[in-house]
Amino acid sequence: MSLYIIKSGLLTTIQDQGRFGYQQQGVIVSGAMDSFALRAANVLVGNDQGDEALEITLRGPSIRFDAEALIAICGGNLSPSIGGQKVPLWRPVIIRAGEVLEFGPCIWGARAYLAVAGGIDVPLVLQSRSTYLRAGLGGLEGRALRTGDVLRCGAVSDCAAKYTRNGLAALESKPFAAAPWFIGFPSRPAYAQEPVIRFIQGRDFRHFTEESKAAFVSRPFYVTPQSDRMGYRLEGQAIRLMQPFEPISEAVSFGTVQVPPEGNPIILMADRQTIGGYPKIAQVASVDLPVLAQVKPGESIRLAEISLEHAEELYMDAEQSFALTEKAIGLYLTKERGV
C-alpha cells in the first residue's frame, strides 16, 4: 500500500516519538510536537504507540490511497474529508482504495497526526524515523513532504488487517467508514483555547524580579509568529533578571522556558537544541506539552506554577489513563463485527 501526496500542505513531516540516545552527540531529539496525539493515532490503527505518523501543520495535504487502508487522525482539527464528507477524529477510519484524503481550514489546534496501519516505510536513522529538517535527518530524505512524493506503508498488524476486512464488507458504496467509538474528551489532554500551561520552577527562577515572577503567572503570553517546532517565542510583560546572570550552558529539555536578555521567554519544543545558555525560569509539566503543541502562533497561553510532586502525579495519572485507553482500543479492534 502506498500514499500518493497530491498536495503537500504547509509542513507535513514524518515523526515518531523522537530520536533519543544521541543528544550527547549534539543530535536534536525532534519527534512529534503533540506526542499524545501521535500515540493515540498509532494505537487506533493497531500500531505500536511510538511508531511514525505524519505530522500535519495548519494547512494539510491531499493524499490518495492506492489500496484500502485503516487510518486515524488525532490532534488538531484541520477539517479532514474524504469524497467531500467530514472525517471524524480520534477513531479508526477505513478508507476505500483510490480515495483521496483532503484537509481544509484549521478549525482548532495546530497539528494533526495521521497514522496508517503498518506505519510508513522509511529508513531508521539513528534509531528513529523522525524528521529533523535543519540537519536533513530521518523521515523521507530528511525533508518535509512535497507534492508528487509516494510513501510506502509497512506491514499491517493481524488485528488491523482483520478489522479492515470486516469493515470493508460493511462499507457498501461509501468512500470511507468511521468507527462509532472514539477516544473521548476525558481521555485526552486538557486541550483548550488560551490554555493554562502548568510549570515547575526552573533552576534560575529566583534570579528574576518579584514583579516578573508575578507577571509570569498572572498575565497571558502571546505566541508570536516566529514560533516553530524548535521553540515558542512568547511576548507579554518583559521578564527581567534582578541582575545580569549568564548561566554556564547545560542540557535543556522539551518544555524548558528560557529567558534571553530582551525579556521575552522562549519555550523549547521538539526541535530544540540539546544545550542552552539562557536563564531558565520554568519547565513545563510533561502532561501539558501536548496542550502547548496545539497552540498556534497568534494565540495566547497562561502559565500556572505547580510543585514537582504534583507534576509527577499528573504524569502518572495521564500514563495510567493512556494505558487503559490503549487496552480498551485493543479490545474494540479485535471484536468481530468490524466498524
Partner: peptide, 13 residues
Amino acid sequence: VEVVPAYTTVTVF
C-alpha cells in the same frame, strides 16, 4: 533514557 554532559553538569533523562 539518556545522559547529556555539559561544562559543569550532567543531565540524566
